[in-house]
Simulated assay, not measured.
Amino acid sequence: MDLPIILKNLLEAQENFDSNSYSECFSDDPKVFDEGKTHKGKEEIKDWNEKTNEEYKTKLEVIDVFNEDQTTILTTKVSGTFDGSPIVLKYKFEIKNEKISSLKITD
């Protein structure tokens, strides 16, 4: 699959449970929407990623990628130590200036 480099970097950071590198994939004023909550800024995103890594040991497997308007959508199989694992989720990214400005995680 042909992924933008910033998404390859994000997936590698997640694979290594590296919340610092994960948060550095985002722009200076990013937003992440997950499980009904919005996380704003790199520090909040780093904290959110650390917490989910500790709680769930989240692993992502990309199933599909496509672009729709200004959004890159990754369909992923998400596994970890949570009820119902694995599940299929969509990661909807807005990328500007080679950084992630927005991520919305949906089913």
Rank of each mutant, 00 (worst) to 15 (best):
E50Q: 11
N53P: 06
W48H: 05
P4C: 00
I5K: 15
D47H: 07
E55A: 07
Y56A: 05
D69K: 04
E35V: 15
K46G: 02
K37T: 03
Q14Y: 06
F93I: 00
E15A: 13
E98S: 10
G36F: 10
K31F: 12
Y91E: 09
L74I: 04
N16F: 12
T75H: 04
L103D: 00
S102A: 02
L11E: 00
I63Q: 10
N67C: 13
E94G: 04
N49Y: 05
K99N: 05
F82M: 05
L60P: 09
K31G: 01
E50M: 12
I5N: 15
D2W: 10
N16I: 00
T38L: 12
S102N: 11
S85E: 12
E98Y: 07
G80H: 11
K46Q: 14
V78Y: 07
L3S: 01
K104P: 07
K90N: 12
Q14W: 13
E61C: 05
A13P: 00
I105V: 09
F93W: 05
K31A: 09
Y22P: 02
G80D: 08
I87C: 06
D47N: 15
D83E: 14
A13Y: 08
L3V: 04
Q70S: 07
D64N: 09
S21L: 12
D29W: 10
S27K: 00
K96V: 05
T38S: 15
E24T: 04
K90L: 03
V88I: 15
K99I: 01
T75S: 11
S85A: 06
T76E: 15
E94C: 06
L7A: 05
K104W: 14
K77V: 11
T81P: 06
S27Q: 06
K104C: 14
S27R: 00
N9G: 08
K99W: 12
D107H: 14
G41D: 01
K51Q: 11
E55S: 04
P86K: 11
N53L: 07
D64I: 07
F93H: 00
M1Q: 07
N53Q: 05
N16P: 01
F33P: 06
K57D: 09
Y22F: 08
T38N: 12
I100T: 01
F66E: 07
K40E: 12
N20M: 15
I73F: 13
L60Y: 06
E50K: 14
D64R: 12
T76M: 15
G41P: 08
K59F: 14
I87G: 11
A13M: 05
L74P: 14
E43S: 14
K104L: 15
D29C: 07
I87W: 09
Y56Q: 03
V78W: 09
I100S: 00
E43G: 06
K40V: 08
I105F: 09
E15N: 11
E61T: 08
I100F: 02
I6C: 06
M1S: 09
Q70P: 05
